[in-house]
Amino acid sequence: MNGVLVLDRARTAAALEPAAVLEAVGRALIAVARDEVSVPARIAAFTPAGLLGAMPGYVPGVGLAAKLVTVTGDPRRPGRSFHRGLVALFDERDGRALAMMDAESLTEIRTAASATHSALALAADPGLGRVAVVGTGAQARAQLALLAVVRPDAEVAVGGRDPLRAAEAAALHPGARAAAGIEDAVRGADVVFCTTGATAPVVRREWLSPGTHVSSVGGSHGPELDAATVRDAALFAEWPGAAAAPPPAGAHELQGLAPDRTVTLLGSVLAGDHPGRDGAGLTLFKSTGHAALDVAAARVAHDVARARGWGIGVDL
């Protein structure tokens, strides 16, 4: 196929093979931790409806890509948001445009992949034990679908504001059930995945058992975890700017940390350069998203689609 490969939403999603994305995202996280990537801080243009973010990135040996993504509120469902956009992949050697694809499905699975890596690396039980997924939207569904591949035998409780949506999301994992609410899902969990568009905390410290691992990937508009959870946990992130940069590049929960607080890069744990969990305390992975992960997922989608003859070629 000649020209720039263009993948629609369905083909993008189909080309993002879970095992391949998980492996590629792990390599990208390690490259970030070892300062091998070139990724400027995310920027955004704000509108009354939300924002348009730009995330370019280069990962040696993987590729060069840029994502344009909009985050806007859903007027029909207050507290929920849309994430829409495009990802363009380029040849890292000669700069040729290689592919354009849907950013929404790509963002969902690469975010779920980083969250899953954090749980596999930092949870007290490598089997994950009892899992809670907080949220019922697109990111929660992506997380449940990936867990169904990685840990199909896990006991999973899905907590959200709408019991019907929680039940629909739970159907994506063979061991999942809809909880009565968020607190019910979280209490007693060994691993908690927070995947909401919250503007205020939806998970409280007093709900968390000793030794719980929390992976928070939501909260674009505000914190989804309370300050006590952040205070008591060993902190992990994808990149240093999660704490050093202000939102939208950095995390709401990690702003204004005390000078003695350390935020460890998840890639350092994956590479074996940091031991990860130390003792029976809480661990918290706070994701803000990172362009290196988009590059990794885009490369997977491009390679799979090319191999299968999917998409159309456009002369650009």
Rank of each mutant, 00 (worst) to 15 (best):
A180I: 03
G63N: 05
L64M: 11
T12Y: 00
A103P: 03
G272K: 10
I43G: 15
D273K: 10
A148F: 06
D260F: 12
T283F: 06
V25D: 02
A271Q: 08
A298Y: 01
H173K: 12
G181W: 08
E238D: 14
R306Q: 14
G276Y: 10
R204E: 15
D162F: 02
A28K: 00
E155L: 12
R187V: 15
V304S: 02
K286M: 08
A169E: 05
A176F: 10
G50I: 09
A233R: 01
L254V: 11
T195F: 06
A179H: 03
P40G: 10
R306H: 04
L64G: 01
H221I: 03
H290Q: 10
A138V: 15
V217Y: 06
F236S: 00
P248D: 11
E155T: 14
V158Q: 06
A13L: 01
A154P: 02
P56W: 09
A45I: 13
A234C: 07
G309S: 10
P40C: 11
G281K: 06
V158A: 08
R96I: 07
A291Y: 05
R96A: 12
S81A: 15
H117T: 04
L68E: 07
A112R: 01
M55V: 05
R204T: 07
P152L: 12
L235H: 01
P248Q: 12
R77S: 13
L293Y: 03
R76Y: 09
C194L: 14
L284V: 12
A123I: 08
A234G: 08
S209L: 11
R76L: 14
V202C: 13
G289K: 06
H173C: 08
G160D: 05
V134K: 02
V314M: 09
A66H: 13
R130H: 13
Q143D: 10
P56N: 10
P210D: 13
A233N: 04
G289E: 10
E36L: 12
A112E: 02
V203L: 14
P56D: 08
V87L: 05
A301M: 07
R110D: 05
P223T: 09
E17A: 04
R261E: 08
A138N: 07
S216V: 10
L7S: 02
G276K: 08
F285W: 04
T288V: 15
A167Y: 02
A99G: 04
R165Q: 12
A142F: 03
A242I: 05
K286H: 05
